[in-house]
Write a protein that binds this DNA or RNA. Structure first.
Lengths: 250, 250
DNA sequence: CATCGGGATTGATCTACATCAAGGAAGTTG
DNA sequence: CAACTTCCTTGATGTAGATCAATCCCGATG
């Protein structure tokens, strides 16, 4: 929260400082277009666990995650929940052309989002084709991720699911690029056991047991409840059930 | 096959006859743009069970399903398979900006596709923004479908999965709009039990058992192995675990 | 018309994961 | 520094769906 608020202050001054400029919606914008985006953007920060919008609520903005992690989830009447989206920094939230959210959007950690008011953003999309192109690219990437996720949900064992999730987070979490020294990686798990279980289509007890099992076998090392070290990434990869080559390449 | 070839002949003459004109990529094109699409399109037909491309193969076209049903699947090294896409007429295949297919594409029934050579299609996308916009809309719809599917894979029981699949096919299969007389719907299941099991993340035995169970309870009526009648759609809907209102509305 | 072969069904058994239940660690609140 | 809370772990038991195995159905083929 404290950290979130201070970053907010910094970014709010000028879009050129804003990390999303380089990676998300406005990656290819000219300076005048950046200026237009400046006009319609604002920042919001959320504490870990806080709900951004509920499924069915009206959502009058689209957004890009600046820092932190947000999730999209669906809930069934009887309370069964399935996560369907995991949004890391630079990921995009919201669907142009729809006014209500189809999913619960939740901040998994303290999170800052760069929001754009929906209507002006859509207008701008019409005027500026490469924003739409960028959005198409991002949506196609998300679709690929969703399909990988479907394989995980439909066919992988609990152990494979856990290993897969750990490798996914390890790969995408930029912060740990630094910590690769002797070939081991370490990072803070940004998800509770419950959030992991919602991602994986398991119960939190099964998640906990499988984590313990990986720990006992030395595939992961834990410090406290959240900090994880992977001493040998390739060895963990073998537990995911994935093709050894695929994914990383191309 | 016979039927496929004869339709092919008809469509090949002029894009104005082509069903995809009204629903897929070129839905908003002006006549000169249609003319350009004419130049780069060709038809291909496939027999039920035939593979269109294997995962990893180069794919030098994008396409739209004209008739029949195609599937996208992923395979793990040990042979476990998960379907990740079900493509009905007017659905789009292929990803602009990628030269190899990430999935096995298979014709589930006899199928005709309207293909566009990739390079010229991509060039045209750059010149014609609304083709990109249309593609973005379609991709967003697919992403929504994938997320619904993730809920099914991660959290639904076998019975709920089967009921969901039947309602999905019933809703999307245009051919049966006709057969709604007394409130009952009937249609030909376009998938084998095995394909259903790959869609649902189950074994084919479980699919078969659950189908028998729904039959015994009168939720569905079967003629032969493939023809299905749903005497009371709402009653089947209650078995899906879905929100009774959601989905159909909005 | 017998044989064949690719679905589909059904039964018997096994097992991975869920469910139910009881603590434990670590932060934080009065 | 007790008493909560929140998150996590671990154990005992139950069960939905997988697995293994026979049999059936039915259109195709010689």
């Amino acid at each position: 929260m404290t950290r979130a608020t201070s970053t907010l202050k910094t970014y709010n001054q000028d879009c050129s400082d804003c990390p999303i400029r380089h990676r998300a919606v406005c990656a290819r914008c000219e300076s005048d277009e950046l200026e237009q985006l400046e006009q319609i953007k604002y920042y919001r920060s959320f504490e870990a666990g806080q709900t951004v919008v509920w499924a069915g609520d009206t959502m009058d903005f689209v957004a890009s995650v600046v820092t932190g992690i947000a999730t999209l989830s669906q809930t069934m009447e009887d309370g069964r929940r399935q996560m369907v989206g995991l949004l890391l920094p630079s990921d995009f939230i919201g669907r142009p052309g729809r006014s209500t959210s189809a999913y619960d959007v939740t901040a998994a950690t303290d999170t800052v989002m760069c929001c754009f008011r929906k209507k002006p953003f859509e207008d701008m999309m019409l005027r500026t084709p490469h924003i739409g192109q960028r959005l198409l690219e991002m949506t196609l990437d998300e679709l690929d991720a969703a399909r990988e996720w479907m394989l995980l949900l439909g066919r992988k064992t609990a152990r494979e699911k856990i290993s897969s999730l750990l490798t996914i987070i390890a790969r995408r979490d930029a912060s740990l690029q630094l910590t690769m020294t002797d070939g081991s990686l370490s990072f803070d798990l940004p998800l509770t056991r419950e959030a992991m279980s919602e991602y994986l289509g398991l119960t939190l007890e099964t998640v906990s047991r499988q984590m313990s099992s990986l720990r006992k076998e030395g595939l992961i090392v834990t410090e406290g409840k959240r900090h994880i070290t992977i001493p040998d990434f390739d060895r963990l990869l073998e537990e995911t059930g994935d093709d050894s080559d695929g994914g990383f390449l191309m």
